[in-house]
Design a protein around this nucleic acid. Sequence first.
DNA 1: TATGAATATTCATATATATGAATCTTTCCT
DNA 2: AGGAAAGATTCATATATATGAATATTCATA
Lengths: 106, 106
Amino acid sequence: MDKRIYEMHAEICKVFTNPKRLEIINLLRDGEKTVNELTELAGVPQANVSQHLTVLRQNNVVTTRREGANIYYKIANPKILQACDLMREVLLEQIKENEKLAKRML
Amino acid sequence: MDKRIYEMHAEICKVFTNPKRLEIINLLRDGEKTVNELTELAGVPQANVSQHLTVLRQNNVVTTRREGANIYYKIANPKILQACDLMREVLLEQIKENEKLAKRML
DNA sequence: TATGAATATTCATATATATGAATCTTTCCT
DNA sequence: AGGAAAGATTCATATATATGAATATTCATA
């Protein structure tokens, strides 16, 4: 059937399993940024930022635009941010649940 | 700051990086199912289904309910399905884009 | 064309993940 | 109590991933 779609889906989700990549994605939330800007904002070595950007680019999560010596990165599809935000909501709800449970333990 | 949230977010996304787990999640879309039902529907060895269900359970992506010898699994939070659906839309849009590009190559 | 700034790639290594095989636990039924 | 069905766990192994270090590429400008 469409087992293939599950494989592709699993593959693209791998992009989101790294905290630094998630931070980069979040930094791009309000529009494009250069590698340098991302490097400074994320506080991670430039080479590492570049490695993560490569992963993001290869999976079409971001697109690029060259302007002189700079390369601007931006989120390719706003739905990606929506999905990330939904997952973050799920996370926060989980945390709240755990807190409730913890209180009941007292 | 909230680096910790990126780590948790990355962690929960690992749940979605396996095609069989995604299939299981999809099988649970319309309501709870037993391990046996999931095993038959997914066409995967029972032990492996159980392994994946453990991952899903540990990450609070599913919840369980015992009824006699059977254990029913269901999706813990509908937002999880929403997020999955959004990512699938992104994927399908990517595929369409690639097809367009391919046609232009002719 | 030489230099510097911006970005990308390669490689090595440590760590994590997926899965089959075997085994164990729980519950039901007689 | 004994056996069968439902589900979980453990272990070993193969494969994938993250990152630092070093190096390479691309572009702008003097």
